[in-house]
């Protein structure tokens, strides 16, 4: 069976984001890039299925600029078998554009299971999974904290308001992974070296017209420096008075 995992290159979450001079994009200078953390949960889940079942191939796919290759190499070092890089220079903040870019290559792979992270932590759209699943006419389960296969069925565990739900569907099926049950493995040095030899197919992606125009990017207004009400337990009555009378939130 074949599992395709879609991953995205995103700025490191520890990055202090700066806005470019034209206010239409972020300032890419000094930005370090990582695999979007939720995508690593998807890769890890795919690898756990591969570990438990015979004849499972894991293919990682990403759309992005040429240096997205480092993100694919990271996934290959974790244990994925091969990668596909859809090179695109355009704006990848538009989820319909991304889903369209991915659709042909992913469809050609005919995956039994198609995995995503629940969202990429740059543009926070959380849309590509549901879109691509719809384009490929696959049932879609959103926000699973883990999934497993038995026979031709996928069972996915999701968090539902204080409890859990198990959703199931026949494969082929698409699932977007949330943080929760699986812990992404750290690639060993040997596997990092091995990953250099693994195949990454490069395809030039054709992108559809954008769905929106970026008017501007800006930093949120800075919060006014607050006040220290006091030290220790003695400050508590004053805090509650302020919350009641000044802030009026209690």
């Amino acid at each position: 069976m074949k599992i395709v995992v879609c991953v995205k290159r995103v700025p490191d979450t520890a990055t202090k984001i700066k806005i470019a001079a034209d206010a239409k994009a972020i300032d890419a200078k000094d930005v370090g890039y990582i695999t979007s953390p939720y995508d690593e949960y998807a890769v890890e889940n795919a690898l756990q299925i591969k570990d438990k079942n015979a004849n499972v191939e894991v293919v990682v796919v990403s759309s992005g600029p040429a240096d997205t290759e480092s993100v694919l190499r990271n996934c290959l070092a974790m244990g994925a078998d091969r990668g596909i890089l859809l090179e695109s220079k355009g704006d990848l903040s538009d989820p319909f554009v991304i889903a369209s870019a991915l659709s042909k290559s992913v469809a050609d792979e005919k995956p039994d299971l198609l995995l995503f992270g629940i969202k990429a932590v740059d543009d926070d759209n959380a849309q590509v999974g549901g879109m691509l699943a719809t384009m490929l006419q696959m049932p879609f389960i959103d926000g699973a904290i883990s999934c497993a296969i038995s026979d031709k069925t996928i069972k996915a565990k999701t968090e539902a308001e204080g409890g859990h739900q198990i959703l199931q569907a026949a494969m082929p099926c698409a699932v977007a992974l949330n943080k929760g049950d699986v812990e992404p493995r750290i690639a060993s040095l040997i596997n990092v070296r091995k990953a250099r030899q693994k195949e990454i197919k490069k395809v030039v992606a054709t992108l559809p017209a954008p769905s929106f125009q970026v008017e501007k990017l800006e930093l949120p207004p800075a919060r006014k420096g607050g006040k220290i009400v006091g030290k220790g337990v003695d400050a508590v009555p004053e805090l509650f008075r302020l919350l009641r009378e000044e802030a009026k939130v209690l």
């Binding site: 700025p11 979450t13 202090k16 984001i17 806005i19 972020i26 903040s93 932590v121 740059d122 543009d123 926070d124 017209a209 954008p210 769905s211 929106f212 125009q213 970026v214 008017e215 501007k216 990017l217 800006e218 930093l219 949120p220």
Partner: peptide, 13 residues
Amino acid sequence: IYAGKVILTASPL
């Protein structure tokens, strides 16, 4: 976007 580190203003096309 970026979990609130940046605010995007956009016009639908």
